[in-house]
Amino acid sequence: MSTRSTTDTVAPIYKSPAGAAAIAERYREVLREWPVPAEQLRIPTRAGETFALASGPVDAPPLVLLHGSGANSSMWRGDVAAWAREFRVYSVDLVGEPGASAPTRPVLGSPDVALWLDDVLAGLGISDTSMVGISLGGWTALDYALRRPGRITRLALLCPGGIGRQRFGWIAKTVVAKLFGRHDVRSSAALVTGLTGPELEPVLDDVTLTFTHFNPRTERLPGFTDAQLRSLTMPVLAIVGADDVMFDSATTARRVRSEVPNATVEVLPGVGHAILGQTDRIMGFLRADAPPA
């Protein structure tokens, strides 16, 4: 990994103030309908104020959730009620993403991402924790587990970046569609996420709203070496979608199986980049009395 340590604040993360307001209003609607009681926390960090939701018994073991790029803590609303029965669940809005945290973007691969998360955990009063991360949040969780191995007790990764090759072919498809007048944000969102079917239309509505108004990170995620993966000592669960268009999930599965000492890997057939409905599977993994992976 690079040792470069800077924070990118040059490019605005929203396309317009009106777009930012539309995303913020939709997020407020979701928070008003949060399925369990939650404290809304604002934590000062070196990368700016960070927003988090805290749910579950205050004396329960901690569980930190890190969402993916172009998302916020709303993505966990289908999971939090179950997890908060046994954990003090902290759903953290990554900085630089369309949530309620600061718009700064610590440089990926630098120490700054872990330093930001140090500040978040300190603000939450957490010394060690289980962690669940998806996509960019999975990359962030894995980066942190490598840099602070004594602080992560169990690590659940959904379609994590940095292990399998990052794919950009979907971008070419959207460019061609745009050239021939067939491009729209909703179609691109469906292609990237793999969200199809009437029951997932509300989720796709939210993704479409976000990417109509939000400028996502465009850089390639730094990769993790075999030696780094072999250094992980905590139990690891990796779940990937076989049809993920953003990451080479077959390589992710192969490398985690072969290199991570205490890992369980699941490949979901017919599933793309958006992995939903894994609440119970992850809960079983997170329980302290769960058998080693």
Rank of each mutant, 00 (worst) to 15 (best):
Val256Asn: 02
Ala290His: 04
Phe214Thr: 11
Leu209Tyr: 10
Arg32Glu: 14
Ala288Arg: 13
Pro12Thr: 11
Asn262Ala: 10
Trp116Glu: 01
Val192Lys: 10
Pro216Glu: 01
Leu124Trp: 07
Gly169Phe: 10
Ala274His: 10
Leu195Ala: 06
Asn262Tyr: 03
Asp289Glu: 14
Gly162Glu: 06
Leu200Ile: 04
Gly137Trp: 04
Glu97Met: 11
Val107Arg: 14
Leu121His: 09
Gly68Ser: 07
Gly68Asp: 08
Ser69Phe: 00
Arg230Tyr: 09
Arg220Val: 14
Thr104Lys: 00
Leu157Pro: 00
Thr7Arg: 11
Phe51Asp: 05
Gln40Met: 12
Ser110Gly: 14
Asn72Gln: 10
Ser187Arg: 15
Thr210Ala: 07
Gly133Leu: 05
Asp226Gln: 11
Gly277Ile: 07
Thr45Lys: 01
Val265Tyr: 05
Leu276Arg: 14
Gly19Val: 08
Met283Gly: 14
Ala238Asn: 06
Trp139His: 06
Leu191Trp: 06
Ala20Asp: 04
Arg186Tyr: 07
Trp83Glu: 03
Ala288Lys: 11
Thr218Tyr: 08
Val240Asp: 03
Ala227Trp: 02
Leu117Pro: 01
Leu286Pro: 04
Thr264Lys: 09
Trp139Ala: 06
Ala189His: 00
Val236Ala: 02
Pro61Asn: 05
Trp139Phe: 12
Pro202Gly: 12
Val132Ile: 15
Leu41Tyr: 00
Pro103Trp: 06
Phe87Trp: 14
Leu155Ser: 04
Leu155Gly: 05
